[in-house]
Design a protein around this nucleic acid. Structure first.
Lengths: 159, 159
DNA sequence: CGGAATTACCTGTACGATACAGCTATCTGT
DNA sequence: ACAGATAGCTGTATCGTACAGGTAATTCCG
């Protein structure tokens, strides 16, 4: 509710509008880039695989449900993606020793290697794109994005 | 291929890695949010309708090809989305007076109204999320995102 | 002017990512 | 030990997208 402010566009709102615009734009860029560069047959890693491997790398091997919860995806989606990744040798599935229902997903060396390659490529791309930026501005961008994501994470309860 | 830097992780690279991480995170948040909030039957605007309306609003009525080029989408994709939007009364198609092959797509008042509603909702959401931020930080975020997008736009020629 | 090449759009088809519903196997609490 | 919850898988549906192919209109060139 928050019986809003029919007071008109306050400066703050202008800034928020700009942020909305830029986030939407960035989103669109990201999708376009992913489609353009990833569709070739030699795609190093498709998108979901990268995110999954990345998460497994930082958070350690875990079962499908945990993965799904963390990635905000349905369990069935993760099941299928993990199956594909197993077929491609990027992850291994082992029965969870602590729970007969569960399957622990862990990255294989090959998976980690490919993930690292993608990460390096992306990092390099950003280096290219931000070539003209000062170290200070880059730092600030990283910091603000981090805080923004934290804010997003702690407050996505519109349900 | 640019056998560069075997020098190890320079501070700059650490920052770039952080940026990569945060952009990826933001992307996932955006997708998750879109799916979660948009799937209900009361979705104000489905799919790419928002982006299309937004673009038509800022860039004026234009034909399908121009739209596709701007949005980095295949013409057929835009055709279908525009058809759906026409069915829903969000845009109107009129024959291009200057080119018998072309169809000019223009937003209807209803379309613009719904677009504005979505934009307002999103802006409010960001206001919520950034409630604890200083005006300065918000400004900086908006500015840096803008510059980042500009850099992305002017340099996506890895093909 | 007239045919060839190009362009704009649409349609058919396919694919990837996702969700939801329903199934089976296993676990947990009383 | 049984009832209910949970983990994962499979079937099916939807959405957004791309590519290939078709038709109509435009433009270019001789």
């Amino acid at each position: 509710m928050t019986d809003d402010h029919t007071s008109g566009p306050v400066p703050d709102e202008i800034t928020l509008g700009r942020i909305e615009t830029e986030v939407a734009l960035l989103m669109r860029f990201g999708e376009a880039t992913r489609r353009a560069s990833g569709s070739a047959e030699h795609r190093v890693l498709d998108r979901a695989a990268y995110v999954i491997l990345r998460h497994l790398d930082v958070a350690g091997p875990q079962n499908v449900s945990a993965l799904a919860a963390k990635l905000n995806l349905d369990g069935s989606t993760v099941t299928r993606q993990v199956s594909a990744m197993q077929r491609d040798g990027l992850i291994a599935r082992t029965p969870d020793p602590a729970d007969g229902r569960g399957t622990v997903v862990s990255p294989t060396p090959a998976g980690l290697q490919r993930m690292a390659a993608v990460r390096t490529a992306r990092t390099r791309l950003y280096g290219d794109i931000l070539a003209a930026w000062s170290t200070d501005d880059r730092d600030t961008l990283a910091e603000l994005l981090h805080r923004f994501n934290q804010a997003l994470e702690s407050r996505p309860r519109p349900r």
